[in-house]
Nucleic acid binder design. Sequence first.
RNA 1: GCCCGUGUGGUGUAGCGGUUAUCAUGAGGCGUUGUCGAUGCCUCGACCCGGGUUCGAUUCCCGGCACGGGCGCCA
Length: 468
Amino acid sequence: MAEPVPLSTAYRTHALNEIQANGAFLIDVEVTVCGFMEANRGKGKICFVDLRDGTGKCQIFLKEGNVDETILTEIQNLSRESTIQVRGVVAQKRPPKVKEGEPIPPPEYEVVANHASVLAQAETPLPLGVTDSVHVELDTRLDNRFLDLRRKHVNAIFNLRSKILQYGREHLIKEGFKEMNSPKIIAAAAEGGTNLFPMKYFDRDAYLSQSPQLYKQLAVLGGLERVFEIGPAFRAEKHDTYRHLNEFVSFDIEMAWASDEDVMGVQERMIHHIWSQVAANEQHFVDDINAYRLTQDMEPIEVIPPTIPFPRVSYCDAIDLIQQSGQEIEWGDDIEAHHADIIAEKHNGFHFIPRWPMEMKPFYIYHDENEKSVSGGQLSRGFDLNYGRDEMTSGGQREHRTEILRSNLENMGLEPREFQFYIDGFRFGAPPHAGWGLGVARLTMVLTGSRNVRETVLFPRDRRRCTP
RNA sequence: GCCCGUGUGGUGUAGCGGUUAUCAUGAGGCGUUGUCGAUGCCUCGACCCGGGUUCGAUUCCCGGCACGGGCGCCA
């Protein structure tokens, strides 16, 4: 267990989960707590408040005689989600009445108030109910994300997202990676392909970066050896699907003296570490999500560390598989969503799709001239990681030979001169290297069973939404 | 950008060419209670916008806007 950290602040002596966790030792101790008032019961001489803070919940018991009468009335008439501060004494709760045959729940603790004050009163009605059982549409939720986030299962999703980043970082650092940051304002639409958001950089035209790709390679060329970056990427594509956003957080690595297979290994070990640690330490968040799913007639989610190594379904094998199912596809065609469904029937978890045709991969992907398909097409060292039908990662070994880089650009109809700053990095000695970029929100979707990437991004930016 | 669909109280829904517009949740009031999905009684609150058809449109038609689903686009 981690060392205890002080949770007391200027406003409270204890967090609410401390009252529940250490209640037996806190009985008769005077504490001051704060929180959102989830519900209040009682209009006469007593009042119960369900109080919630970012750590947990606790019942507050107010009774005429213990607290000032005006305070009692004020709390009794207070609107839900108002914030209050309570001073009182910890006591064991009287056990709730249970139906015959049902187990008696473990003891819980409450604070018997001797003083309370309202910190901020909530307006009514709430734009969405924090504890209500009624369904709320995603659009309403996103318009009121600050309230949506107070719902337990939503809060759990973002706690788990934070854990993905924490355990992912933890693992990469263990493997010798260093965290870096690349610029998000770039001068040129350097790579073609996806559309960039234009912006003004003082008097010049500039763009928002679509990927840290070139910069993390330059860091490796500079001798940082192994780097990772967790940062935003921007794409001005007018897509409108459950898995695309125009701003997203990309988890990127780049690694020297390495092949595509080497960095696939890093990735599967990292994902395995994340899943294992979540299963070991964060099950309560998963339980929160499942408690909600139960009310929505959804299957519960389970966090089971995936077996490594992940299956490798090479591009050629994938094409065969799709053809065998009767679909029209040829070597050199992109694997589209309905094709991915066929692969997912056989591999419903994580699986790599390595060795794509070189012509389908960007100019900086490495190829070995001896690696050709049966039909003679040039293969590359580019790969994807999919979960079921959904793409999580795009990666590969990078081309480190300056002359090949130049000819790749020419073969793809790009102008080598426009990439001079990039090619320059390779002119004075370059290690073979490889890397990948992983969509954090997409991985969080998998972990939390979310079916829309907007569920796993606090304030998503899509084609229509730019606020809040 | 394409195809399909949906817009009804704060939230989520039912329904209809003429209704007192359904239900849940919520909000307000009063009462009771060591309550805990509190509870009993009372009250409040809605047909996306514009045009058309019609005696009459929330309902049918057209347009707009918003949203949802699927796809495309997508290092």
